[in-house]
Design a protein around this nucleic acid. Structure first.
Length: 408
DNA sequence: CAGTGAATAT
DNA sequence: AATATTCACT
């Protein structure tokens, strides 16, 4: 409100005001002499490259600077090349529009230079697009020097093609799009990959989830557990090691995943359940069998006590609740039948009921792909033989197993 | 360990 | 909505 210090006033003019590229190009365009032009351009490029070298160490902190520099360098080089090759008129139209649109529109001077492309400038969108284009394209550029030439090449040819056309739209979309693709490739770059894996991983992590999902729903039912999920933690550890700042959302996700990191849920296939029930029976019923015993009897590779425990809990729940609610005699009879069904072959083929060992079921140890305990699951797909196993996971509902209760 | 119940994730 | 998994207790 009071007096404004000179540095802050609008007319503040530093002694050294680096020319903007626009200004520079304007100047250059005024030079009639081609060699002069080229040398000027080259000089500027050199300075830019030098600058780039300086901030190279901070490229991660100053990505936009890199972009800008690259952008400028490419453009100038291009310009230089064109000057030399064509040796004709200045082909600055491409670049000039980038800057001060208003000025360009009005000023006679500029008008003379940009004649053809004036219309482009009159439209802000065009400028934006162009900006984008250049920015994006530079992304690819500052990756590797190798890409450099090829890319400027691309730009060059592109320019020649699209130049005559309505430019703005065409270029805006076409060129802006390309860089996106390039950007992907750029993400794969080794150096960058190691240092800034955030981008990739943010995407990757959810991807893994999906993967797991799929393997479960698509692949063999029983093998959907740990084998797959084990890969997730790995990815997460990578993820965690990244110091890069994450968005709030990302952080939350990360935290959740870290904390929870839920294992792939066990799919209780009918086959699995059958074994479970068999074991139960051998042990004297669900009320007396303990998870550990059950698990051992089930001989299912990769099955954990917790899983069995959980399943047992559910089993007990289901077997417990039915009797009370079922009041009608019919239901009761069902109850009986239910328990019978449980063990009868209806559901699981043969009655393993009385069998002293799960011999009822000829199959040997079931091996799940889930190698929790680090158990190697050699057979891996041992489940393949059991079609039951492959079918959907067991459904409590479908089997009204009554509490024949500790059936046995 | 085993059992449970509740909270959560799928 | 049904199931599975985890967690916190006991």
């Amino acid at each position: 409100m009071g007096s404004v210090p000179p540095e802050l006033s609008l007319d503040f003019r530093p002694t050294f005001v680096p020319k903007t590229i626009c200004t520079f190009l304007k100047e250059v365009s005024l030079i009639g002499n081609v060699p002069d032009k080229v040398s000027k351009l080259d000089a500027f490029v050199k300075r830019l490259e030098e600058e780039m070298r300086k901030i190279d160490a901070f490229k991660r902190e100053l990505p936009l600077c890199m972009l800008l520099l690259n952008d400028a360098i490419v453009a100038l080089k291009e310009e230089s090349v064109q000057c030399m090759s064509r040796n004709v008129e200045p082909v600055l139209e491409e670049f000039i529009p980038l800057k001060n649109k208003k000025e360009n529109n009005r000023s006679e001077e500029d008008g003379a230079l940009i004649t053809n492309k004036k219309e482009k400038d009159s439209n802000n969108n065009c400028n934006n697009n162009k900006d984008k284009k250049n920015w994006m394209s530079s992304v690819q550029l500052w990756n590797t020097d190798d890409d450099y030439s090829s890319i400027s090449h691309k730009l060059d040819s592109k320019r020649k093609d699209g130049d005559s056309s309505q430019g703005c739209k065409n270029r805006g979309t076409a060129t802006a799009f390309m860089p996106f693709k390039m950007n992907l490739g750029f993400a794969v770059r080794k150096e960058e990959k190691e240092e800034i894996p955030v981008h990739g991983l943010t995407l990757l992590t959810p991807g893994i989830k999906n993967l797991k999902e799929e393997s479960c729903s698509t692949g063999s039912r029983t093998s959907c557990s740990r084998a797959v999920s084990s890969s997730a933690p790995n990815a997460q550890s990578t993820f965690r090691s990244v110091p890069q700042p994450l968005s709030h959302h990302q952080q939350q996700q990360q935290q959740q995943q870290q904390q929870t990191a839920r294992k792939q849920r066990r799919c209780w296939s009918p086959e699995l359940h059958r074994r479970f029930v068999n074991a139960l029976q051998q042990l004297g019923g669900s009320q007396v069998a303990t998870p550990k015993q059950i698990r051992e009897l089930m001989q299912v590779d990769g099955l954990t006590n917790d899983e069995v425990k959980s399943h047992l809990q559910k089993y007990r729940l289901h077997t417990r609740r039915l009797p009370a609610s079922t009041t009608s005699p019919a239901n009761q009879s069902v109850v009986v039948l239910g328990s019978g069904l449980w063990m009868s072959q209806d559901q699981y083929g043969e009655s393993s009921k009385g069998s002293s060992s799960q011999s009822g079921s000829p199959q040997g140890p079931l091996q799940l792909a889930t190698n929790t305990g680090g158990t190697s699951n050699p057979g891996g797909d041992s489940m393949e033989d059991d079609e039951d196993a492959k079918s959907e996971s067991y459904s409590w509902k479908s089997h009204i197993h009554k509490p024949g209760k500790d059936d046995v």
